[in-house]
Each structure stands twice: as C-alpha cells, then as structure tokens.
Design a binder for these strands. Sequence first.
DNA 1: TTGGTTGCAAACACTTTGCAGCTGA
DNA 2: TCAGCTGCAAAGTGTTTGCAACCAA
Lengths: 158, 158
Amino acid sequence: MTDQLAPQPEQDPSSNAAAGAWDGIAERLRAGGLRWTPQRRTLVEVLRACKGHVTATELIGLCRERDATTTPSTVYRTLDVLEEFGLVKHGHGHDGREEYHVLPEQIHGHLYCEACGAVWEIRPETGAVIVAALEADLGFVIDLSHVTMAGRCEGCRD
Amino acid sequence: MTDQLAPQPEQDPSSNAAAGAWDGIAERLRAGGLRWTPQRRTLVEVLRACKGHVTATELIGLCRERDATTTPSTVYRTLDVLEEFGLVKHGHGHDGREEYHVLPEQIHGHLYCEACGAVWEIRPETGAVIVAALEADLGFVIDLSHVTMAGRCEGCRD
DNA sequence: TTGGTTGCAAACACTTTGCAGCTGA
DNA sequence: TCAGCTGCAAAGTGTTTGCAACCAA
C-alpha cells in the first residue's frame, strides 16, 4: 500500500539522467581505499534505476531481484558508504521507516499524496518560498531535503 | 519573530490550557461503551501535561514515572482509542518513529532543530504561506499538521 | 454479571553488530 | 598479501497481537 502508479510525479527522466554522478563511483571508492564489489554494483544499479527516494527495505527487495543472495546487512552497510560519498541521503518517509533520497545534490523536498500514494517533488522555486517564509518567521533555517509533507495532489482533491 | 525567541519553543502553557477538550473524556468514553480505567487516566494526565507532540516511547516513559507498572501495549491501545476520539493524531517524527500530536484541533506544523533538539511551532500565518505556495506550484493541498521540517533554529545557526 | 481492558509474552518488521572467512586491488 | 567486505546469526528497537485474568459499569 505504498505504491505510486499515479500520473507521473517525480518521474522526470532527468532525475536519473543526472545519474552521470554515479559514473565515477567505482573509481571514487577505490580512490578512497574502498572496494568495488558485485554487491555494491548491484545496489548502485538499483539506485541508478530508481526514482528520487526509496526505503531501505525496498532497496533490499530490488537488489534481490537482481541477485537473490543479497543480504540486508550488506545493503545497509553499502548505503552508509554511499551516503558518505554524497550519493544518497537518508531521511524519514511517511511509513516511518528509513528512506533514502538518491542524488540529493539537487536539494528538494517531497509531497506525499495520502490518497493515491504518489510522491511529488517540491520545485526549487517553491522550496525557496517556504525556506524564506520560515526564516522570516522564526529565523529558522530548514533543510528542505529532509522534508516530506502529506496532503492531496491535484488529481485527488475532492 | 518576537513571538518565541526564548529557549522555550512550543512551551506556552496555553497550549494545554486548551486542555479543556480533555475534560469530558471519561464520560465520552463511557458514552461510547468504553471504560475509564486508571491506566487511561494516567495516559490522559500525561498527554494533558505535555507539549504538542510526543513519541509513543516518550509517553510510555512518562506514564511509567506516574505508574511504574505501565505496559507498552496498553499505551498503544489507549492511544488508538484516543485517536478515534480525535484527541491525538499520529504521524511520524524525525526519529522515524510514531509520533503523536496532542489536540490536533489547532492545525500547525513543526520545526525541529537538529542542533538543540527543540521543536517549534510554525505559526499559522507562515503555514498559510507554505500551503499557498504548494497549491500554486502543483495544486497540492498539504496537511500541515503532519509536517515537521528539520533545520536549525535562530540560536543554532552557523 | 459481563464485555471492555489489562498485563504478559511472544511475534513482528526493520536495522545494527560481531565475527570468521572471503576477495579485490 | 591483507585490509576491506560479505554473509550469517544474533541482538536490539519499537510496535502489534493473542489470550487468560481482571474489573468498571
């Protein structure tokens, strides 16, 4: 009950065409004294193919589709490594579980539709308005990449 | 921002003076064929005394301070009942765990300071700006009461 | 009395950790 | 070779559920 076959929120291909950022990952790992293993390759392939956000559990399932021997601990540990390299960033989704944002380089928040389950990206310009409003209000500087707001998308408003 | 610049975000006593909403709870439960038990009384007292939001785990701890025999299952079950009565509403906080909003009647979002851990309320006027921005952007109508954004408060910036 | 409640324990789902053995560089 | 990595198993969270005993109305 957490699927999103809705219109096409957060579907823009560029969100992963921008996957060029992953290209040097094997070398980058090695440069850092780390290894490029089949397990890591599997996870990276999965991450490159997915939308802006996934839960760790989903990733484990996706990895298992490619390699049935995938173990959770390896996935979690690899995600930690990738996070240190800035390729993913973890936060919390509306299921209350760990959620990973892929390629957080482009800071943005998410909108979760309670009706259809789709997740939409908050556009940078809109995000800027929100950030500015909160700063003006309480002098609070928010980290928009950690934000997910629930509500109803255009198509689900009654 | 002359509202709450002091180190006591979301602390205003009135936030619970509004606790009048709790007054008829025992009768309301009975009217619904339910019971008013010592355990429920303990939890309600705790809820009345707390700020706008708490995690289930925190509530269990607070209840234990009053009654060391409190058990988690009872707290969770009572919270479910209270939620049906509209006295609390659950969502998810930044620890990724269940979080309960007390007296959700006043819709507002929260700001969580990653540095000092304080939680601030987003003022209705500011919330309105955010809601309007998102509606203008994607036609999305958000449920501000479910929103918690992370960042740094005025005192913890830089 | 009696059906809603409780406490306990066990089950769950997700995540983390320790460790021996494996493997990429 | 040998530090980093993996898989397994076990431990740890926080939350849920089954059930017999309990007690508010």
